[in-house]
Design a protein around this nucleic acid. Structure first.
Lengths: 112, 112
DNA sequence: TCCTGATACGTAGCATCACTACCTATTGAG
DNA sequence: CTCAATAGGTAGTGATGCTACGTATCAGGA
């Protein structure tokens, strides 16, 4: 599916994916793909910069490790990241309720 | 609420708002505000360019009229616009299901 | 009369953010 | 040795909503 629509929601997905344990970037992509039955297949050029943003913002902490000669950058939620995730979840609930109502419902009153 | 998150969903909202009859831009803003209990209050600088985009894409048709000296541009869904709205609704259902699952659920499998 | 606020439409420039298209490197299979 | 999978990364682009303006009419109050 088109991830263009993700604008503003990607960070929350990444944080949620890191909630139950540290992961490296590639694993995040796979986890999201598996979690959504393949419907959400993010390109690396989307995920890596996003993780860097989150790290710069102090929401995750990244650490280098080397596994069998292959370097990996593993990310872990910080306390701030946990709080941000809660906020993102609340934002999402409100957002989906609002858009759902306006898009699916028929509450638009008659004009003029 | 922050309309930044609307990226990619605004067009659908505008089309849905025009579904039950023609409206002019200002009325679209008011209708969306009323429909969402004031939670979605779009600035004119967001709505007018968006309506122009939709018109350029042939999804709505705009016509000038003058009411008591005040000019209004009234927009009406085209057949193409109706089809686009159906597509947008389907996109939204899939999108909200995917994001909801990844954000709220716990289907992220264990890595490594 | 003049001024303000609500109504109504519009544009220019900016910022955000995901995407495409690349590049580098290691490991294991053929 | 070569290729695919794994793993990380950057540069530049494009879409799109936002801020901050500008224009105009009309009603109502000072």
């Amino acid at each position: 599916m088109r991830a263009e629509s993700l604008k503003g929601h990607l960070d929350g997905l990444l944080l949620a994916c890191l909630e139950d344990g540290p992961r490296h970037g590639y694993a995040v992509i796979e986890a999201l793909r598996d979690a959504t039955g393949g419907q959400l297949d993010l390109p690396t050029g989307t995920v890596y910069p996003a993780l860097h943003r989150l790290e710069a913002g102090g929401l995750v902490r990244g650490r280098w490790s080397v596994v069998t000669g292959r370097r990996r950058r593993t990310y872990q939620l910080t306390a701030k990241g946990h709080r941000a995730l809660s906020g993102k979840r609340a934002d999402w609930r409100q957002f989906s309720a609002v858009v759902g109502a306006a898009l699916e419902g028929r509450p638009c009153p008659d004009p003029t």
